[in-house]
C-alpha cells in the first residue's frame, strides 16, 4: 500500500510544469524515505532529479518500495482536473499494481474526485551521481536567473557563464551581436531571497545550451532562489529547493568550446 497526501496539492502542478519540456515519461520511485524521480531528456544532454521527502507530506505511507512508470502528459491532464487549493492524495494498491489513483478533495470536503491512471512499463536507466565539491556555488533569485536566460537567448543559442569572486557574468553572441550580463554578489540585503551569494574555491568558465537552461527555469515558481553549482568540465547543477520537502535539480552537460 502506498498513500501520500499533500495539502498543498498545487505543488504537483508546479512540478509537472517544471518537467514538461524535458520529459514525457518517467519513473517515480517510492520508498519510506519519500518519492523521487530521475530521468534524462531524450537527447541525454540533461538530467532531471526530483526529491520529495516523506516527512514533507501531510500523510505518507509506503509499505514496500514501488516504482511507478508514469506518462507525464497523462498525469498533467489528470492533475489539471484539481483546483489549486485542493488536497491531493496519491494512492497505489498492491493488489492493483498497474494503476495509480489521484484523489482531489476541496478544502471544505464538499467535492471529492478520484482519477485512476494506467501505469507504464518503463525501462529506464538510473545514473549514479557522484558527490562533488563544486568550485563555485551561486545562489540568486530564481526570477533573476529566469530573466537572464530569457534575455541571453535573444542573442544566441549558448551562454558562457564566468564566475569569479566579484560576480557572475553571462555572455552570449550571435548574428546580431553580443550581450553580457554581470551580476555582483550582494553587499547587503534585507531579504534572503533577493540575495546573490557566491561561494567560490576557484574561478570557473563554462558554456551551456540556453535551450535547456530555459527549460529548467520552468521550475521558477517552486522556489524564490535558485543555486548554480559549477566545476570545470563537469555538468552544471541548477537546483530549486522545494520548501520543507526536497528539491528539483537539473544537471546539464557543458558544451565544448570551439
Amino acid at each position: 500500500m502506498f498513500e501520500a497526501r499533500l495539502v498543498q496539492g498545487s505543488l504537483l502542478k508546479k512540478i509537472l510544469e517544471a518537467t514538461k519540456d524535458l520529459l514525457t515519461e518517467a519513473t517515480f520511485d517510492c520508498s519510506s524515505t519519500g518519492m523521487s524521480l530521475q530521468a534524462m531528456d531524450s537527447s541525454h544532454v540533461s538530467l532531471v532529479s526530483l526529491m520529495l521527502r516523506s516527512d514533507g507530506f501531510d500523510a505518507y505511507r509506503c509499505d514496500r518500495n514501488l516504482s511507478m512508470g508514469i506518462n507525464l502528459t497523462s498525469m498533467t491532464k489528470i492533475i489539471k482536473c484539481s483546483s489549486n487549493d485542493d488536497v491531493v492524495t496519491i494512492k497505489a494498491d498492491d493488489n492493483n499494481p498497474d494503476t495509480v489513483t489521484f484523489m482531489f478533495e476541496s478544502p471544505n470536503q464538499e467535492k471529492v474526485s478520484d482519477f485512476e491512471m494506467k501505469l507504464m512499463d518503463l525501462d529506464t536507466e538510473h545514473l549514479g551521481i557522484p558527490e562533488t565539491d563544486y568550485s563555485v556555488v551561486v545562489k540568486m533569485p530564481a526570477q533573476e536567473f529566469q530573466r537572464v536566460c530569457r534575455d541571453m537567448s535573444q542573442i544566441g543559442e549558448s551562454v558562457t557563464i564566468c564566475c569569479t569572486k566579484d560576480g557572475i557574468r553571462f555572455s552570449a553572441s550571435g548574428d546580431l551581436g553580443t550581450g553580457n550580463i554581470k551580476i555582483a554578489q550582494s553587499a547587503n540585503v534585507d531579504k534572503e531571497e533577493e540575495a546573490v551569494v557566491i561561494e567560490m574555491q576557484e574561478a570557473v568558465t563554462l558554456t551551456f545550451a540556453l535551450r535547456y537552461l530555459n527549460f529548467f527555469t520552468r521550475a521558477t515558481s517552486l522556489s524564490g532562489q535558485v543555486s548554480l553549482s559549477m566545476s570545470p568540465e563537469v555538468p552544471l547543477v541548477v537546483e530549486y529547493k522545494i520548501a520543507d520537502m526536497g528539491y528539483m535539480r537539473y544537471y546539464l552537460a557543458p558544451k565544448i568550446e570551439d
Partner: peptide
Amino acid sequence: DKNQMKISSFFQCD
C-alpha cells in the same frame, strides 16, 4: 550539435 556533451558521459549507470 557536435559541441554539446552528453550527460551520460559524466554519470555511470547504477
